[in-house]
Every structure is written in structure tokens, then in C-alpha cells.
Design a protein around this nucleic acid. Structure first.
Length: 272
DNA sequence: CTATGGACCTGAATGC
DNA sequence: TGCATTCAGGTCCATA
């Protein structure tokens, strides 16, 4: 479910409400990907000063001194409400605040909530170090993107997913952006021309920005922390369309596997 | 350093 | 209906 747009839409849906709330209690369900890293009681009494996002991580700033990193993994979603029912089978973290309860629901438990004492980002946690630039931020610009691709011999699809060059592009949006740019996913990153790198840069920005603007799209149910669904207007051009005709030229969409992940592309519209 | 494959976990869909 | 297999939006880590 969650790539950058879904995480950002989630953030926007509860950031203002939880801002300045005081933590009354925190509780855990089954183990997530990593341990919390502190006693739940030690969160009590602190204030959530704001919610930021870095890549696919949500960052809750705590006062005094601290940071809660939250990741939705593959199947995570967040709810925020004044009154929530008792935690269910797949609810694994509750943060009860004076403004409402923030709840992480994550059936597969690839997600995580991790406490860090550091307040400032980058080296704050090793999970955040080594992340590439924010695709919707001012540092993502075409020339630098092209330069970064020059240093990578791996297939462009894998480079996008790795997140070392640019963060937040997951499996669906990687396929979609490469389709928009007319680039074959197997093309080695360092072989991509300046012109095509610039097209890909524009495609990434466009596909992510449009998805955020539409409230987080994607194919299956996605809802923000208020339980509202995305608009689904950004229908996939290639993702999950193996064998179906390309919406641009009619050629059958192909599915291949790269790094044990499905890749979809149009063999006619996307050239190596 | 890069590249690869495995690991984590549950549920839905498909096939026999 | 039951049971086995495959696949799913992520990403860290060990190994070569």
C-alpha cells in the first residue's frame, strides 16, 4: 500500500491534529520489524510537536528530546481518532494523546515504530542515513539526478527502488515513471542519456505529485488516518497489467521479475 | 565497494 | 471443501 504519496497523505491527514498533543500512554501489540527501542512509559508526558516525513518514514518530533520513526512497511496504515475501538488482531501500536489516539495497523508487520533520542534528522538513526534526496523537494533537480545515475551500473528500476539516489519511489510508481519516460526498466542506469534522465526526473515528480494531490491513489484500498479513501484517478498505465494492451500503443504489457519484484512495461513504448 | 538472494509475516487469490 | 502454491505497495542483512 504505502509508497511516498500514501505516506505523505497519511502524514497530512493527522499532522495538524496531533500537533501539540501530550502523550498519555503508548502500547504495543505483536512485534514489528524492529523493537521500539525504549520503554513505552518513557513516552508518557511528552509532547508531539510536529510530524515530518523522510522518504517513506513518518517522523514524530517529541518534546522534550526525541523522535519516533514510523514506517508502514508493505501493509501498514494509520488511524487517528479521539475514540478508537480496542486494538484488534493487527493493531500493533497505539499512541494515546490528549488530542486522540494514533494507531498503526499492520497485518504483515513489516512496518515499525522506532524511538530515537536524536532530534535532528540525518544521522538521527541509521535507518535514515544513506537515504537519497526527496523527490518533491528542492534538492531533486535534473542535472544532479543524471550525474547520480552515471555512477550506477544496475538496472534503472533497481536504482529507483534502492532509494540511494532518490527516495520514496516504490514498485508501482517506479514502473509508472519509467513508462512515462519511455525507458525500459532493465536499462542500466549509467547508460541513460542526459535527455532521458531529465525526462525520467520529470516523470517521477509528476507521478508522485499527482498521486499526493489525489489523496494517494494506487490500485487497492488505501485510506488515510481519517479512514478516507484515495481518489483512484491515477490509474496505472502498466502496473499489474501483464498481457493487457498498452494504453498508448496497444502492445501487450510485459511482466518480468527484477530482484524478486514484478516489473511491468510496454516493450514498444519503452526502449532500452 | 557492488550484486544477489534470503529474511521478516499475513492474507487473498488461484490451482488441483 | 480442503490444501498447497503464488503473490503482494518494503528494505535490511548476510554472503560472494
Amino acid at each position: 500500500m504505502p509508497e511516498l504519496p500514501e505516506v505523505e497523505v497519511t502524514r497530512l491527514s493527522f499532522a495538524d491534529q496531533i500537533s501539540k498533543a501530550r502523550i498519555k500512554a503508548a502500547s504495543l501489540g505483536k512485534p514489528l520489524r524492529w523493537p521500539l527501542g525504549c520503554a513505552t512509559e518513557s513516552l508518557t508526558g511528552r509532547t508531539v510537536t510536529g510530524v515530518r516525513r523522510r522518504g517513506k518514514y513518518l517522523l514524530l518530533d517529541l518534546q522534550p528530546q526525541g523522535l519516533l520513526l514510523m514506517h508502514l512497511g508493505m501493509s501498514g496504515s494509520v488511524m487517528f481518532d479521539r475514540h478508537l475501538p480496542p486494538p484488534g488482531k493487527h493493531d500493533h501500536f497505539d499512541l494515546v494523546t490528549t488530542h486522540g489516539t494514533l494507531r498503526l495497523h499492520d497485518p504483515r508487520r513489516f512496518g515499525a515504530v522506532v524511538y530515537s533520542t536524536r532530534q535532528d534528522d540525518e544521522p538521527a538513526h541509521k535507518l535514515l542515513s544513506g537515504l537519497g534526496v526527496e523527490p518533491l523537494g528542492p534538492d531533486f533537480e535534473p542535472a544532479a539526478f543524471h550525474r547520480a545515475l552515471k555512477g550506477k551500473a544496475a538496472a534503472i528500476k533497481q536504482v529507483l527502488l534502492a532509494g540511494q539516489v532518490v527516495v520514496g519511489v516504490g514498485n508501482i510508481y517506479a514502473c509508472e515513471a519509467l513508462f512515462m519516460a519511455g525507458i525500459r526498466p532493465t536499462t542500466r542506469a549509467h547508460k541513460i542519456s542526459r535527455a532521458r534522465a531529465h525526462r525520467l526526473h520529470a516523470a517521477i515528480v509528476e507521478v508522485l505529485a499527482r498521486a499526493v494531490a489525489q489523496g494517494g491513489s494506487t490500485l487497492r484500498d488505501f485510506s488515510n488516518a481519517m479512514g478516507q479513501a484515495g481518489h483512484f484517478q491515477l490509474t496505472a498505465q502498466v502496473y499489474d497489467r501483464a498481457g493487457l494492451p498498452c494504453k498508448q500503443c496497444g502492445a501487450p504489457i510485459r511482466r518480468i521479475v527484477q530482484q524478486q519484484r514484478s516489473t511491468y512495461y510496454c516493450p514498444a513504448c519503452q526502449r532500452p
